[in-house]
Design a protein around this nucleic acid. Sequence first.
DNA 1: CGAGGCCTTGACCGCGGTCAATGCCCGTGG
DNA 2: CCACGGGCATTGACCGCGGTCAAGGCCTCG
Lengths: 188, 188
Amino acid sequence: MKEHLHKISLFVKNLDNEVLSVVQTISTTKHVKKGEYLLRHDEVCRHSYWIEQGVLRKFYVHEGKEHTTELLFENDIAVSLASYSLQKPGREYIQAITEAVVSQTDFASFQTAKKVYPQLMELDLLMTEYHAVWLEKRLYEFHTLDATQRYKLLLQEHPHILHTVPLTYIASYLGISLETLSRIRAKI
Amino acid sequence: MKEHLHKISLFVKNLDNEVLSVVQTISTTKHVKKGEYLLRHDEVCRHSYWIEQGVLRKFYVHEGKEHTTELLFENDIAVSLASYSLQKPGREYIQAITEAVVSQTDFASFQTAKKVYPQLMELDLLMTEYHAVWLEKRLYEFHTLDATQRYKLLLQEHPHILHTVPLTYIASYLGISLETLSRIRAKI
DNA sequence: CGAGGCCTTGACCGCGGTCAATGCCCGTGG
DNA sequence: CCACGGGCATTGACCGCGGTCAAGGCCTCG
């Protein structure tokens, strides 16, 4: 995963200034309050959000229960791919779990820009590949690790997570109940 | 998912003839025997395989046990993304579970072609988006459906699967043991 | 006819879920 | 300043899905 991110940031570093400034012009900075929603169930995801500060989560609701699919930190990009890529309503919510500052890019403008600047098309491809590999990793972890191992791994990858993300969301992200997470923590 | 596939096939239909013929020249047809491997653990995935005929599976081995991550049929594309996108060794195997005919495209040649023909870059993006959305769907199903529901859904989506894919692989793909699958089938 | 691959069936167990009670922290108002 | 209420987390009792191990059935092919 690290290598993938490195490849992307290298690519961004080498982007033409013209391309960079185009991206600037189609993006706007947005301040988000804790608890605020950037996307709701059944809405079309018309923006991607580059997180400058703060923490977001993505989740859906199934049988009255929230399932957190992603926890997003600085420099991550928040987007509900299924909804975004086809511009049709999706099931996911995107919510700020701390105060946050995001740079929001409009889908339609970005589509247009991609046609004009193939570099942006390539960037989009790189980021989508990254996301797909990340999803494969997540599936892999669910199939090969038990709840305790997944929790330990999460702590390793995000040492500060306990300071910013409530245990409820962490449990949900790990695919376990809050009670089970509590027992795991007591046992360690 | 259907809509995504439709969007892709529409895109392919509208490709310039020049682009199509370029893709032809960097692809070669390959006949694969039942049981044969197209990719092994620790190898670099240097090709993508467009399946013209037959069935493939993708899997990895963890603690001596095979985990099937994907079952691939006609018109699917087999590629081990983590290995392919960074051209580094990966954990996945790709194996034919019936006799098969695939059109194999070389990674390096395709990279070059993408730089020359932005349409191919866009096509690659569309296919990668599709794969990512598919992965999200798979995660969703694991978190919201029990083993029986997943089995029924699989039968719905691939009515002929029982004729071509051994139950061992189906169980593995569903993330359950062969015994559990057997009990589910007895119960239905 | 015998051997091996594939699947089924049975007995047992453990991880993680649910429900419910309790604990703890903190902000607000009397 | 303390008391109370609400949100978040912990703990306990119990249960069920799906795993494991082991035995047995059933084809197919040599």
